[in-house]
Design a binder for these strands. Structure first.
Length: 151
DNA sequence: TAGGCCATCTGGTCCT
DNA sequence: AGGACCAGATGGCCTA
């Protein structure tokens, strides 16, 4: 006759003795096993919930640093990832372009005529001005390819 | 009301 | 054995 001990730490001496007695063992063992399985399931559910909440927190943080291009509606998870991808690619392109010139001033002078001040977007509640941050203006006047699906 | 988005539950798989 | 991660199922909420 199998003891319940291996399956249930909480069962203790009493259940171990009952199992050895035979008759009620199968029912008690199975009900205890079901009970502990249910407990484990609930714990797993809670962990999964916490994990998904962590994931959603990360998505919220990502939404805050990704430009929304005037959209007032909250980006979906899929849209957030697509926008982040476009944004990173745009920044990478701008960075690569900037590195081709020896000084920041050369690069700014070269591109000054392309700045469109009226198209600047506010970013995280801060309006950029041409004097304060020309790099940021260049970045935010750049319109990335709209949601190209990356395969 | 259909479709999109999301949260949650659940069982399976992999890793420690 | 238990935790992390994943994908499918399901039901709720919202919007056009």
């Amino acid at each position: 006759m199998k003891s319940c001990k291996s399956n249930n730490v909480d069962s203790g001496l009493e259940s171990d003795m009952q199992c050895k007695s035979g008759t009620g063992c199968i029912m008690k063992c199975s009900s205890e096993r079901m009970e502990s399985a249910a407990k484990r399931r609930l714990a797993a559910n809670a962990r999964e919930r916490r994990r998904m909440q962590g994931l959603n927190t990360a998505f919220d943080r990502l939404r805050k640093v990704v430009p929304q291009w005037g959209q007032d509606k909250k980006l979906s998870k899929y849209e957030t990832l697509q926008m982040a991808l476009s944004y990173i690619m745009a920044l990478t392109r701008i960075l690569a372009e900037a590195e081709r010139y020896s000084t920041e001033r050369d690069w700014i002078n070269l591109h000054c005529e392309h700045f469109h001040q009226e198209s600047y977007h506010t970013y995280m509640g801060q309006k950029m001005t041409i004097d304060s941050d020309p790099y940021a203006q260049r970045i935010f006047s750049y319109q990335p390819e709209h949601f190209q699906i990356a395969n």
